[in-house]
Design a protein around this nucleic acid. Structure first.
Lengths: 185, 185
DNA sequence: GCACACCTACTAAACACTTAGTAAGTGGTC
DNA sequence: GACCACTTACTAAGTGTTTAGTAGGTGTGC
């Protein structure tokens, strides 16, 4: 994890990973048959432990959106994981990257969750106009968290991930509910 | 440009770049003394041509923020450049990356421009509370544009960069002006 | 005696970069 | 306008290093 985070996939070498793990490069390939399999294994392991920590019940609606702000706050204390995801998600858009499927799936899932939470929170209807607005808002919420991470990794003093995330989520929710004054609370 | 965009810096080879340019790898190094110098040259060239296209006068205030939305719209037609910046900006946070200084400077400049535009547009004061809000909002605006690009590159059908960018900017501006009802328009 | 966990030793390819050369100019002098 | 000194724009053929992956072995525990 640390090596992929510090160097990206392509520039990370099995030798360095093996050194840090206390065995030889061939020893690493004993457990993971190839470098790309090691990468996807690391990403899936990371996911599993995150889901475990979240508990069995995923919060819904506004509580889920608050949970995202809380994640941003926690991320400011976990540079390693932030770097891992920021570097690899962007690197995954390059040709034939082994984590491309992983990130495509991850974003698809995230978009669905956040869209649902926004629809619930703002009491949006099922019309295409409302659905589109919810989708665009959800994509923006995910995007702002990702984009802040890159700025923060380059210059931690210039960025407050929690404050900016909260500001955007609050503004979006206010905007979506204001435009539908008929919604019951 | 195309090669760095398609492969990232580390996985791009001088041989491929040379092939596409119609000369040998040594021929490329005749013009650029090293691979990292080639990368920084490409980025600076790109910048120069963007500045030329913008014209000498940079728009200010609300017009600048509208210009950002317009950029998002134009970017949906320029996958190559979007990919170049999305991939390299994230890759630049890895250890000893040659474009690290470039992107640190770029973001610092962008943050200053967007912060100014938001302060002007919302008629914010000079107090620290207002200044902080403007900074957080500016960072979020930049972040949302960057984050959308990664999602869009992975799955173009799932993301509308223009709509999401506009939604966030509008919501943020409404939020910041609503909280200061005393501001004269 | 067999499976597992690993290592040593290797291979073949790819890599950035170097060296030494060539061909085609360019500018100045007689 | 012929000759010389020098530069520019490359190429072919390396160098040394790093790379992922492989083959075959050794020790340990059951």
């Amino acid at each position: 994890m640390d090596t992929f985070a510090a160097r990206g996939y392509n520039n990370a070498s099995l030798a360095e990973i093996a050194d840090r793990a206390g065995l030889t490069q061939a020893g690493v390939l004993h457990y993971f048959r190839s470098k790309s399999l090691l990468l996807t294994s690391v990403l899936e392991l990371r996911d599993d432990s995150d889901i475990e920590q979240l508990g069995t019940e995923r919060p819904r609606g506004l509580r889920f959106l608050h949970h995202l702000v809380e994640t941003a706050r926690r991320n400011a204390e976990r540079e390693g994981i932030v770097r891992l995801y920021a570097v690899l998600s962007a690197e995954s858009v390059t040709d034939d990257h082994p984590a491309q499927d992983y990130f495509r799936g991850r974003y698809a899932g995230l978009r669905a969750f956040v869209t649902d939470a926004i629809v619930e929170t703002c009491g949006l209807g099922t019309g295409t106009a409302d659905a589109d607005r919810a989708r665009h808002a959800a994509n923006a919420v995910i995007a702002v968290m990702d984009g802040l991470q890159i700025q923060w990794l380059l210059d931690p003093a210039a960025v407050e991930m929690t404050a900016s995330t909260e500001l955007v989520i609050d503004a979006i929710l206010a905007g979506l509910t204001r435009e539908r004054p008929a919604a019951s609370d």
